[in-house]
Nucleic acid binder design. Structure first.
Lengths: 200, 200, 200, 200
DNA sequence: TATGAATGAGGTTTCATTCAT
DNA sequence: CATGAATGAAACCTCATTCAT
């Protein structure tokens, strides 16, 4: 890790726990192991750190979404390919690379904190927490409907139920205090129950 | 409003928007219209303001919960009394006196921000955002089941669906940026759709 | 004790331990058990407390000195009366009513602290710690010389020795940290050894 | 002088006159000619200044004591060498480098003020004002006794007289108000009289 | 006598930032 | 790349004091 990366890593950890304003340049530099003046070689000012984090997060999200689109547009060569694709979307793109990804999880926390007084962050928060996931679930269930796995007419209702349940689980387990292994496990269990039709 | 009440009122507004640490005593006093030294006549220190807000919130919540218990224990004198009781719980206790109540809504926002580095607040946040509402929904649907309105065997599943959906709606509309009339209306509309069976 | 006396009592204890400036009106009132505004009924301001203490101390000292003069001027009715008088001066006026007297001891400590930047207190400190005691010892040994107990020619030298030794003992035992029983005893022992010719 | 040294220099002057608590960071910085924030680059906090002064003083004292030990252990090459050594100890180590040394004199004043509520400083005060000097005088007179200059049996008594007299003179002239040339001269005169047998 | 409420001034300390080296 | 030294602004808080009640 370069010094710049180290600064960003330390910053997101601290920002996501105490909020942007409550973290001082001193705090960050102390943890990174550099002097305050050194930080200003790598970043224009404090806000520049936050901006860089937001850019990095947006890039990450855009990457994820484009991957999902690729899967979506892949020709259905084999029967039931969509099952594999759906599983991959849920496991890889929603969980491993988003909600469970250390950087993303911390960024979501930071957005939860900052959204109340920062319109740009609020918009990003709404997009990544509500709009994007809803669209992804919609894609999944439309595909399932097109295969006849579920009735077309029920697709939207099911999407709503899934989205609501997944959203609630995310806030309850992944954005509630420290992200412990215990909370992760409880989350995964409830998601599996949901997938297996034990809940809805 | 006494000076002390004014301070608490201004404080919860500011804390809930920018977070406890990001708000200065100067900010609060400037808005209240007093000198900083005056604030220290009413509060021991900055933390004491936060503590007082938490105490006030806990008292409010305890009041709500005890009212719900009273309704619960009231003898069923008239047929369908429970319908009225259920409506009262949802409208009065969950919405008017909790999620829409200005003080409570701001306290929830504050808890959302502070829970990441304050275990006491985190526990209160989990209780009031997840545990208490779940228990309340459970009460409602158990009563409905006891009246034969819904099958006993489905009660728990329905509770889960309701709880998930209501929770998601709360985060999406009532805890997302400023609490505008527009967001309130959107929330109410979706809740009504949910109640009328248009969603689940 | 009246409230005014209580205030003075608490004040001298605190002033003598931490110095005048380091003690706040709040500290004093907290210990006395009154509100700050109440103190201003009894004293014009903070300095007025100090002034009152100094006046009280001066009165006490003047009382002691006038008593010593009375003894001094009493006709020698009985043989060896002076021995009793000398003992009384040393035990009663130098120790019981001055160095060991709680108020006086605390006032001396306060003067030790404040003398470095307060000329009035410095003058009082020099008078009560060096000049007055020297004169008292001189009186004692002149009387002894007039009785032939010691040679007239040695009186002054002896006075100097006594004064130096007593002064050193006072600073070493009575004005060094807290005035504990242990330090008092050590002081008395050395004074007795001195009186009995075991030292000089 | 570096900025740090300047701060310490100004601090000891102010602390020794008005006491640690009565001197503000603002006072010190105003005199040094720096901003308050600059001071905090050099010292962790206000107490850190005091601690640094105490460390510097202890180092100074340790240096003096080790020099005295060196003289003590030097072989007696010439007759009467000890006279020269004794004079050096009195003039150089007790006066020039200790009681008259500006830093040490101020530190003693500071200790006089602070000892009443700071046990660490009290212990240092007792050591440097009573214990160390006594041991030094003892060394001098034991050497004189070993040379036959004074009877061995009287050594201890003489030490006590000297120690008492020197201690009293120190408090009377060097630790009483401002350290003026007049007070220094009066002190030196009495010490010389003492040395020449005019007093004891 | 005593208090509640207020305040201007000033206390210690931390903040983000700059700039020469 | 990194640091040492500095700073103006602002943070939290305490100070002695006042005044109406």
């Amino acid at each position: 890790m370069t010094t710049k990366e180290k600064i960003m890593d330390v910053a997101i950890h601290m920002f996501s726990e105490r909020g942007y304003e409550a973290v001082s340049i001193r705090d960050i530099c102390g943890e990174v192991g550099i002097k305050e003046s050194t930080l200003y070689y790598h970043f224009k000012n404090k806000e520049d750190i936050l901006d860089s984090l937001v850019v990095k997060f947006k890039d990450h999200i855009d990457g994820l979404l484009s991957h999902i689109d690729e899967i979506d547009e892949a020709p259905l060569k084999k029967p039931k390919k969509s099952d594999a694709a759906n599983t991959k979307i849920m496991d890889t793109y929603m969980m491993d690379n988003y909600l469970f990804d250390p950087f993303c999880n911390l960024m979501i926390r930071l957005m939860m904190i900052e959204q109340f007084h920062n319109e740009e962050i609020r918009a990003l928060y709404e997009k990544t927490m509500f709009t994007d996931p809803y669209n992804i679930y919609m894609k999944i269930f439309e595909r399932l409907a097109s295969q006849g796995a579920i009735p077309e007419s029920q697709a939207e209702q099911i999407v709503r139920q899934y989205h609501a349940y997944m959203t609630m689980l995310t806030f309850k387990y992944l954005l509630n205090g420290e992200l412990t292994e215990k909370r992760k496990k409880a989350y995964v269990k409830e998601v599996h129950d949901l997938m297996n039709g034990k809940i809805l």
